[in-house]
Design a protein around this nucleic acid. Structure first.
Length: 521
DNA sequence: GCGGATCAC
DNA sequence: TATGGTGATCCGC
């Protein structure tokens, strides 16, 4: 298994596109959070995940670049194109890293010709002109999120047979080169007079195969990647970090090599062991992976079955031996941080906006869901979530808001002065909207839902139901008052009132059904 | 199913 | 002045 990771990805793209950044300490992100930093900035302790204003304190001269995701997506596509030639079933973990299974490729490789392992290459140098004919100039189409590369470059880098044949292309470039001036009028750099390309032959083994892949990535993106090669994904992930940047590392598929590698490895290096887990384990004197096995007795006592098995797998260097494709999405969410918010109407408005966004996202992905979760983060950074599952699948923002509103209202009512810094809305229990039959949306769904409600209610005392209805009526009255008090939110509250009314009718029906049932008894 | 926590990126 | 957004999973109810 191979894990590939682009080196300081976002920062590298920005440095590639703006040479003036290359000599500087720089990071990509915003004032509140940095996504990544270059190696100069890292010397000052500037790290991904660090707030920009703190990084500025560590490094006065830090240049912070706002992220350009359309660029990163475009580059990622190029990288994926290379990945696909080695393993069509590769699995991306993010824009800049992925897992590949080289098994099939290595079978093919053993019987491959030299020419099939030869990568054509354009050697580049800062002193040479690339701004015209030979320049793989990066042109981004922001709408498409795709990158266009001039045809010439496409020809050179994507034709492995280029050097096996009587190559008229090469001659043409040479010939035309003779008519060019020595220096470019645009960039004043020296212009190639001979064909600026060559070819590199890679060997048969997996180290060579991965070098070849990394070379192709570099040729196509002018960015470097690091890779890890190991018998499973758990190990390959750790390996890709060993010789970063622009390097690779291999753990052989032998018991000795795996054990040697894993024994002295700090547990924190393993993907899945985070800050908290590290601290907890260090409290038991567990710092290296071999300690997990040494302390397996204690571990078993204090851990759940799942955790214990996970720890034991780590200590033995066992991981997945195949790349698993991403399963179905399980949730979709929107959340936003903002300056401290105390005004209720503002909160409801924010909630409505989030629901609106979420509804749009769900529709775009052809998804519907039935569990709505409201997330709030208070000014003291404490986080709270409230969830409710509704009767029918939906992607309708008004229905989402109806539920989110209730959850938010509960929170507002339950606290004296709510000071928020973040709000989020999540939809889970998802289904593809196409799979929703009309049945589920009309009478049948309504009836099953009602049966459930009745069952739940009949477990309670009947007078509780009436109390509940009275409480709902009071809630509605509160909302009416608020509506009168707030002109600019008039429509919003009118909608709430509307939906509440539907709900109330719903409840009335339940009472009738409930009475019928009790009568029968 | 719900809510808190942890984790990766 | 000031610490993100999205998705997944696990644990204990």
């Amino acid at each position: 298994m191979v894990h590939v990771d682009m080196d300081m990805f976002y920062a590298a793209v920005e440095m590639r596109d703006d040479p003036s950044l290359r000599e500087k300490a720089m990071a990509v992100g915003g004032n509140s959070m940095l996504s990544t930093s270059n190696y100069i900035a890292r010397r000052f302790g500037v790290r991904a995940g660090m707030p920009g204003f703190i990084a500025k304190k560590l490094c006065q001269d830090l240049t912070i670049i706002r992220p350009h995701f359309f660029k990163y997506k475009a580059v990622s596509k190029q990288v994926q194109k290379v990945f696909a030639t080695y393993d069509p079933n590769f699995s991306m973990m993010s824009l800049d890293e992925g897992y590949l299974d080289f098994t099939s490729h290595m079978q093919w490789r053993r019987e491959s010709e030299d020419s099939e392992r030869t990568v054509p290459v354009v050697w580049r140098s800062e002193e040479m002109c690339f701004c015209e004919k030979y320049c793989p100039k990066y042109v981004y189409d922001e709408n498409q999120g795709q990158e266009e590369i001039p045809e010439k470059n496409e020809d050179i880098s994507s034709s492995p047979d280029l050097f096996d044949e009587d190559d008229s292309n090469e001659e043409n470039i040479k010939a035309s080169g003779e008519n060019l001036p020595d220096f470019c009028e645009n960039c004043e750099k020296r212009i190639f007079k001979t064909a600026p390309f060559d070819a590199v032959l890679f060997g048969l083994d997996i180290n060579e195969a991965v070098k070849e892949m990394r070379f192709r990535i570099e040729q196509s993106t002018h960015l470097t990647a690091s890779a890890g090669i190991a018998p499973n994904t758990l190990l390959s992930k750790v390996c890709s970090d060993m010789n970063k940047p622009n390097g690779q590392y291999r753990v052989l598929p032998t018991r000795e090599d795996v054990i040697n590698f894993i024994d002295e490895l700090p547990i924190r290096k393993i993907s899945g062991i985070g800050k908290v887990c590290e601290k907890m384990l260090s409290g038991m004197e567990i710092k290296y992976c071999q300690d997990l096995f040494k302390k397996r007795g204690e571990l078993q006592l204090i851990s759940s079955d799942i955790s214990f098995r996970y720890y034991m797998k780590i200590s033995l260097g066992i991981g997945s031996t195949f790349v698993s494709s991403h399963g179905e999405r399980k949730s979709m969410s929107v959340e936003r941080t903002f300056r401290e918010m105390t005004d209720r109407d503002e909160m409801y408005k924010k909630c409505l906006d989030l629901c609106n966004e979420l509804g749009g996202d769900l529709k775009r992905h052809n998804l519907v869901g039935k569990t709505i979760t409201l997330k709030i983060k208070k000014s003291d950074f404490s986080v709270k979530t409230k969830a409710q599952t509704i009767a029918n699948f939906t992607d309708d923002y008004e229905l989402i808001f109806k539920t989110a509103y209730d959850l938010l209202e509960t929170e507002i009512m339950n606290s004296k002065l709510l000071k928020l810094r973040l709000m989020g809305v999540r939809m889970s229990t998802l289904q593809e909207s196409s799979k929703i039959t009309s049945k589920q949306n009309d009478i049948k769904g309504f009836l099953t839902n009602m049966k459930k409600k009745v069952a739940k209610r009949s477990a309670e005392k009947p007078d509780l139901i009436k109390k509940g209805l009275k409480r709902d009526a009071e809630k509605r009255e509160t909302i009416n008052i608020k509506r009168r008090a707030s002109n600019n939110l008039k429509d919003m509250f009118a909608k709430i009132k509307e939906t509440r009314k539907v709900e109330a009718d719903d409840e009335d029906d339940i009472i009738v059904v409930y009475e019928k049932i009790t009568d029968k008894k």
